[in-house]
Nucleic acid binder design. Sequence first.
DNA 1: CCTGAAACGCCTCCGTT
DNA 2: AACGGAGGCGTTTCAGG
Lengths: 196, 196
Amino acid sequence: MRGLDDTDRGIVRLLLEDARRPFSDIAEEVGLSAPAVSDRVDRLQEMGIVRGFTLDLDRSLLRAGVPVLVEIDAEPGRAAAVRDGLADADAVEHVFRTADGRVTVTATVPQAEVSDLLDAHVDLNDVDSYEVRLVADSEWTPGLGTAEFAPECAECGNTVDEEGERTVLDGDSYYFCCGSCESRFVDHYESLKEGA
Amino acid sequence: MRGLDDTDRGIVRLLLEDARRPFSDIAEEVGLSAPAVSDRVDRLQEMGIVRGFTLDLDRSLLRAGVPVLVEIDAEPGRAAAVRDGLADADAVEHVFRTADGRVTVTATVPQAEVSDLLDAHVDLNDVDSYEVRLVADSEWTPGLGTAEFAPECAECGNTVDEEGERTVLDGDSYYFCCGSCESRFVDHYESLKEGA
DNA sequence: CCTGAAACGCCTCCGTT
DNA sequence: AACGGAGGCGTTTCAGG
């Protein structure tokens, strides 16, 4: 399995600044040809590092409701469930789950009707307590630094190094630290799929 | 001044899903010609609603350090200063300032060395207390809903309606609720600029 | 995995409505 | 404001190393 090299990082950095920048332009910057850049972007998408191309919107200029930041203390072990419920909600923009079992959410709701939002998308038994704060402003400055590619093994959770494997299942990439983790996961995946 | 119509919202929604989608494609979806879409995207950028085109990255696959969420309670009136300092930091991705004087930041730091980050970019006299949480995972689901265009007057802070004005100063758009706010702001802006 | 040429498709400028 | 056509780029496919 191949990791990220400096060329990949260069491409990502340029696309973070302007995702519509011509590949031929990027090619010149990183010292490649346009087709090579196109291939690498495809690969970055396949790897799952680049999830897609989007807009950076200034939501402070838009009135779709009240922007809020909600801090939810989940019941032990239920943070992931709370996150999953909220991530699907239309009004929700960001969901951060932290290691201490808290889920921090930013959303834009009609009239600070946060309880409705939680009611509709979260099992309230999963919630210990929550706090709502009005967002005055927010900024987003995507950067990359010297990031290395280091996914977690989908089976055992260990960090996957260059010796690892990647498998594409139903369009999504999964990473494994070794062949046995891979086959174990694939078996499990397929049996679940048959059941559904 | 023109606001947002359904066609604008349609264009934004499609670009949120795929910012590299051809304008000719989008044109067909919203019932316009390609040049018309191009014009509207230009206008959306001029208005400042579309800040730019970027990538949606899955940072959980990248190891650039430890992802943290920091909650900072600023001293009274100093939240904006704390936000400004942090927004410039390389490691920082999101900054949310809430109305209660708190600044919530997400960043990726070498080894959870958050105190260094604060030290370098914030006047510690502005900080009352802070708490650091390790980010386990995060999601981003950009949506738009039925958002209306409703900027604040750069001079007096009131919401700007259809009767308002827009002025471009040094490439940035500013909005005003009325002509007198506009001229007052422009005068102030120009005198500040001469002084610098 | 990359390059270079060539075909195709897309974007944007312009004249027009 | 938006359309349609024309010209000029940008992207992608393909053969070759």
